[in-house]
Design a protein around this nucleic acid. Sequence first.
DNA 1: AAAAACAAACTGAAGTTTCAGTCACGTTAG
DNA 2: CTAACGTGACTGAAACTTCAGTTTGTTTTT
Lengths: 192, 192
Amino acid sequence: MADRRTVILEAAARLIARRGVRGLRVEELAAEAAVSTGLIYYHFKDRSGILRATLEFISDRAGRYTADQVAEAAPAEPRSVLEETLLLEFQETEMVRENSTAWGELRASAMFDDTLRAGLEDATRVWNGEIAELIAAVLPAVPGDPAYASAQRLTALVEGLSGRWLSGGITVEAARDLMLDAVDVELARLAR
Amino acid sequence: MADRRTVILEAAARLIARRGVRGLRVEELAAEAAVSTGLIYYHFKDRSGILRATLEFISDRAGRYTADQVAEAAPAEPRSVLEETLLLEFQETEMVRENSTAWGELRASAMFDDTLRAGLEDATRVWNGEIAELIAAVLPAVPGDPAYASAQRLTALVEGLSGRWLSGGITVEAARDLMLDAVDVELARLAR
DNA sequence: AAAAACAAACTGAAGTTTCAGTCACGTTAG
DNA sequence: CTAACGTGACTGAAACTTCAGTTTGTTTTT
């Protein structure tokens, strides 16, 4: 098993997904990680330190699983790579749900906690960049700027749709359909 | 001045926008509304009752200010009515920022609080319906279903972009530009 | 028209619970 | 040996909720 620090972070991600940042109790985190509260303060300065570290942990993990799954798949046309990558965020698996929920929570928390903003922005920029590159792979003729704008819209839409999915407003399937159409719409526009 | 119950709700919206749902303290709410803590429990059963009532209050108010501002404006082409309506959510005014922030907070909270979901879904459905109608006004030939799907994408995008705006990721101007292009993209697709 | 009864709105301090953070004291690996 | 790792009971402040009682306004009685 991973070292205790990692165990704590995994537990934090799980708990944030289940109860939200607002509902994260240090004592409960200790129980979930099967660890003492003292150890948590040994590894992380304070509650907000836990959150910051968890954000980093989650975005690392998200980056890893998207990269993995895309690499795993048979070499496909650029377009379906783009679609698959965006759709990875809409799956009924524990890890995706966990990551998405926690991500949404941290995004929401960042509105009131400056210390979270920097990390969130970096992660968002990286994500936008990845999507922009995938778009460029589909339409090499398109200059970078419009592609990046499309990427911003698509990733923002992922977040918006995730919010609705996770708060019970729509099903994963509906979210996937809406997302696919959005890709279609954006590419058609860029191709013009 | 409005009755005390309303005063409390206005104060709650202000405070949620300033400190977040998690940061809402009943005592602070009492102070902000210039009211005793007891009165809050007199009008709302408990803390979560405050949140539920505030959600309702906010979505009513949002409905009102969009309707008002659109009605106020000189009769315009349907297309710009649609654009204006969506852009109303991206303004650097106190009330819009307040509504958007509080809305985002409540959406996030709904992921973990079932009692908030119903209200949120209703409000979302109404909003989608309004946008779908505006789309139909621009393109009367388009059947309702695709128009509603476009509306869903556009409102989800509003939420996604709002999240980024309010957590400092992008400026209002950037959000507005991205939004306008999204309208363009969606309409172009529907017109096909 | 004055008094009495009643109800709704409201107060603020006290009771209770919850929770982040600490500390004195083990345990283990190098 | 010792430094890093780890424990869990404890603390104090802060927060939610309750409640006994006051004020204000309305209705009924005499």
